[in-house]
């Protein structure tokens, strides 16, 4: 017969409450970023939690370890599905259709990766993202640029004042990872690689399964309102169930206390 302690009941319920709370937080974060360019939604993932194997499996318990311990939040899985590509009228608004990330240089010299393609030119004509981090590979536009053209294969062409033919001045490259889900989010819509994601493999757009660049467009977040609402309702209901379970556990403990 499995051993049981009165307070373990409360802990099982608490594990459930904590997981549901996290799911509500994750959904709320998705909601908050529904209009963030290039945002990739997260989902909370749970696993069934059995107590550690200090205790021998009780016969007939149907489990290999001591006792049930509720649920465990394993991971917040980020879903890197394609967001909707929306047209914009700025020429340095870029969207990636398919796999890959833009690369930006952080102030400390390291490289960060993003799907947010709203870039701009700084005072010296150098391309930066909205936080002012330099685009990699560095692209500087000649001061006498009159027209800029960004092709789907990443080549950047400019037509200088007085010229009729545009010339190629740079090529945008994209980075991709063996496991996107392993990327670590560092805020400002930026990701950095980890051991789980693998090293960045940089290639020209359209080559080696890399996505293509769409100029004058932005990738909307991949958050879908209806899915999030369904998840929120589910998580809230599950939370209420756990509160109910906790109340019941408490009532049982109170009854046990009142035996005499």
């Amino acid at each position: 017969m499995p051993s049981i302690s009165l307070t373990s009941l409360l802990h099982v319920a608490r594990a459930g409450l904590r997981s549901q709370q996290t799911e509500i937080d994750v959904v709320a974060n998705n909601f908050a970023n529904i209009n963030t360019i290039g945002y990739k939604r997260s989902r909370a993932e749970f696993h069934e939690l059995l107590n550690d194997r200090l205790e021998a499996p009780p016969a007939g318990s149907g489990r290999t370890s001591g006792q049930a311990a509720g649920t465990l939040l394993a991971d917040n899985q980020r879903i890197f599905s394609q967001g909707l590509i929306q047209p914009s009228d700025r020429e340095w608004d870029l969207a990636i259709e398919g796999e890959g990330f833009f690369q930006v240089q952080m102030p400390d010299g390291s490289t960060a990766y993003t799907r947010d393609g709203s870039f701009q030119l700084d005072g010296e004509g150098q391309l930066t993202n909205i936080n002012g981090y330099f685009f990699l590979p560095n692209i500087t536009l000649p001061p006498d640029t009159e027209q800029t053209l960004i092709n789907s294969d990443g080549t950047v062409m400019v037509r200088r004042r007085g010229e009729t033919e545009p010339e190629t001045i740079a090529t945008i490259t994209l980075a991709r990872f063996a496991n996107n889900a392993g990327l670590e989010k560092i805020g400002e819509n930026l990701f950095v690689p980890t051991d789980a994601s693998g090293e960045a493999q940089v290639a020209q757009p359209g080559v080696d399964g890399q996505g293509q660049i769409v100029s004058r467009a932005l990738e909307a977040s991949n958050v879908e309102l209806s899915n999030e609402v369904v998840d929120l309702i589910g998580a809230q209901r599950a939370y209420s169930l756990m509160v109910r379970a906790m109340e019941t556990s408490d009532e049982m403990l109170s009854l046990a206390n009142q035996v005499r």
């Binding site: 017969m1 499995p2 049981i4 009165l6 373990s8 009941l9 099982v12 319920a13 594990a15 459930g16 409450l17 997981s19 549901q20 799911e23 993932e45 749970f46 696993h47 069934e48 006792q67 049930a68 311990a69 509720g70 649920t71 589910g234 998580a235 599950a238 169930l241 756990m242 379970a245 019941t248 556990s249 049982m252 046990a256």
Partner: peptide, 23 residues
Amino acid sequence: MLTGLMRHETIVHNLSNVRTIGY
């Protein structure tokens, strides 16, 4: 009473996994 507690524990464990995939 003791059996009641154990049944309750099983139910709470189930309820806390109401959103667990493949549970």
